[in-house]
Amino acid sequence: MTLAFWVAGSILAAAAMIGIVRVLTARDAATRAVVGDLVFFSCICILALFGARYASSVSVDLALLASILGILATIALARIITRGQR
């Protein structure tokens, strides 16, 4: 199981790197917002896996808070895309 968690963490890191490359090559702001969301959730999942490996109880609370409040960044980016209109 420890090996599987390490493999999963590596795959998630690869997904986050691909996402960062996609942000750099994107041409419109909406694509950057979407891929930024993907990178955010990849990093949260990597932290949760590390928490399981090192028995840190903060990681579960971190995943809980990130899943509830992760919408704020997306809504702020959506407001920026429409230049302040609702």
């Binding site: 199981m1 599987a4 968690f5 493999v7 795959i11 997904a15 996402g19 999942c45």
Partner: peptide, 18 residues
């Protein structure tokens, strides 16, 4: 282990689908 690896592969395929 299976859940972790399948979930991570879903993230990777979404990144490629972008």
């Amino acid at each position: 282990g299976t859940l972790a690896i399948v979930g991570a592969l879903l993230f990777l395929s979404v990144a490629i689908a972008q």
